[in-house]
């Protein structure tokens, strides 16, 4: 009893653990299905490795959507932030790193540190606009997204900045685990602990549930929001470093589809778009589901049509999947509500 009570209040939160279990089943199902549909292709060590370096890119960004959505907001500027951070890092590497020859560790370190500084500044600007100025998060981050992307264009003049200096992150591994995966795993631990075992995390959920009550309960809502958007910016800049490390270039319009993808991940992972509920475990499972789907669908489309248009099919599939998941959530919630008495007023007082 004690155990289950605790699990309910903390790990699964409002949606309950059934959602997580269902997601786990879906992930396994997708995995098995593609293994059978694509014999000798999907369930191979090479494919596992290739998937492992792909998902951290958007998986990391998804944390930025998770925490902002938990507060009842959203950060639509994450891709802009990531690219701007990557461009700053790339600039440092190309300007200070010399051409061709490996840059000194100091320059590499400086570049890797510059990204989070830029990301933090971007995030803090969002936080100020949302928390202090009071602009709706959708509009504020649409505006800053345009601003950050615009600045990227202004800095680069349009084309990508190429540098292979961070390839050791993009291609490297520790004990056989790709570095991007390690970064993702570190963020999983960080956000699990932050959201479940700190006062800040607690306050994020409370603020997302009812901002007015949060203010009246003495939660410093300005500070919580500032910190949330700052964290989102920081996370986005980490994703930016991974972009740069994997693609060996930084450009203003990289990963434009990631906004949709990360929103999809959050919704699939059970994060409520009105705020206040959602968990890291759901998010991780959703990331895995999407990576399996993405790779599997790509392989399948290539096998079936062989045309390059297959990459566009994914774009279609993500949109369709987002709508499908929300429609399914609608029905499952309907069913839950039907199983309960319609309202508290309707039942006689205890």
């Amino acid at each position: 009893m004690e155990q289950t009570a605790k699990r309910k209040t903390f790990a699964g939160f409002a949606r309950g653990d059934s959602h997580i279990l269902r997601l786990l089943a879906i992930a396994i199902l997708i995995f098995i299905a593609f293994s059978f549909l694509l014999p000798g292709k999907f369930f191979t060590i090479r494919n596992m490795q290739s998937m492992a370096v792909q998902f951290p890119e958007f998986g990391i960004l998804a944390f930025a959507i998770l925490i902002t959505m938990l507060t009842g907001g959203i950060d639509l500027s994450i891709v802009g932030t990531a690219n701007l951070s990557a461009i700053f890092a790339a600039l440092i590497l190309t300007r200070l790193g010399g051409d061709g020859a490996p840059a000194s560790p100091a320059v590499v370190a400086l570049a890797i540190l510059a990204a989070p500084v830029v990301g933090s500044l971007c995030g803090l600007l969002n936080g100020l606009l949302v928390a202090r100025v009071g602009i709706t998060p959708i509009l504020a981050t649409l505006g800053t997204g345009s601003l950050f992307t615009g600045l990227s264009y202004v800095i680069t003049g349009g084309p990508a900045i190429t540098t292979t200096q961070l390839a050791f992150i993009g291609n490297g591994s520790v004990l056989g685990i790709p570095i991007p995966v390690i970064v993702f795993a570190a963020l999983v631990v960080f956000f699990s602990v932050t959201l479940n075992r700190t006062a800040y995390g607690f306050n994020v959920y409370m603020l997302g549930t009812n901002a007015t009550a949060a203010r009246f309960s003495g939660i410093n809502t300005t500070r919580v929001l500032l910190r949330t958007y700052w964290l989102a910016g920081l996370v986005a800049s980490i994703a930016g470093v991974i972009f740069l490390a994997r693609a060996n270039s930084a450009k203003p319009d990289y990963g434009a589809s990631f906004v949709l993808l990360t929103v999809l991940i959050a919704i699939l992972g059970g994060v409520s778009y009105t705020g206040g509920s959602g968990s890291v475990s759901g998010l991780v499972l959703a990331v895995l589901c999407l990576q399996f789907l993405s790779t599997g669908l790509n392989m399948l489309m290539l096998e079936l049509s062989g045309s390059s248009a297959a990459i566009f099919f994914r774009q279609f599939a993500w949109g369709a999947l987002l709508l499908l998941v929300m429609a399914l959530n609608y029905y499952s919630q309907k069913r839950r509500e039907r199983n309960r008495a319609p309202s508290q007023e309707a039942t006689p007082a205890a």
């Binding site: 309910k8 607690f202 959920y205 549930t209 009812n210 009550a213 009246f216 509920s277």
Partner: peptide, 11 residues
Amino acid sequence: EGLFLEQSIGR
């Protein structure tokens, strides 16, 4: 102003 209706009584 007073309650977080969707959150648990305990929270």
